[in-house]
Amino acid sequence: MTKRYKSFIRYFFFIVGLLFSTIAFSQNEFIIKFVHTANGKRIIQNDSIYYTPGGEPYTISKLKYYVSNLDMNTARKSCFLIDAFGIDSFTVRPQIGLYAFLSFLLGVDSARNVSGAQDGALDPLNDMFWTWNSGYVMFKLEGNSDSSLADLHRIEHHIGGFAGTNYTMRRINLSLPKKMHANTGRHVITVEMNLDNYWRSVNNISISETPVIVTAGALAKRSADNFPQMFTIKSVE
């Protein structure tokens, strides 16, 4: 009886040990954090006035976008919603190895745009889904500007469209300042999104000309072309 009991205990601890070691190994993780700047400063919701490179003043009430399909084996099918004034980071557990790049899709891939009711980041409750013309809003920027002739001087840039030539997803490739080992505990990669480059980089986007963009098409694509210019690696640790 005692012997049997002992072997059971031994077995029990073996299993528990196995479980713990699994958890310990899976602690290797990258935390991807986004910080959002305009005019060289971290943006503040509503209260602060920023200027586009073209000199148009604006405030920001909402800034949300999708980050998906990370080029990191385990996270290829992942999808995260970043909210500049809410949850602005996520954690991935990459396969063990050396990483020299951070590569992700800004937006939601085509397959997910036609896959029906979804949950998590893609739940329509997140207010990032177009109902009348099915598809996700990839990037949403809202605020106000004296340069806007729209109702209440508002800015509403809901950039979306996934089909045919109207696609607005853009792959963002960022090289890391140093190669990162994915087998040595927890790393934080901080990515800066610079809104100045949203208004002027590849294309020049004027608030007075286009205060409201809420459909897929040429205007949305012009905005999307600026996405890759907005992101840089701020720090890795």
Binding site: G116, A117, L125, S134
Partner: peptide
Amino acid sequence: GGVNNIEVQPLNPITAKNEMGETLP
């Protein structure tokens, strides 16, 4: 043909002001 999947169709009538006029939450 604006709705590409049967599952997301009800979002339209539920939220349209001149149909069911409600919010998902």
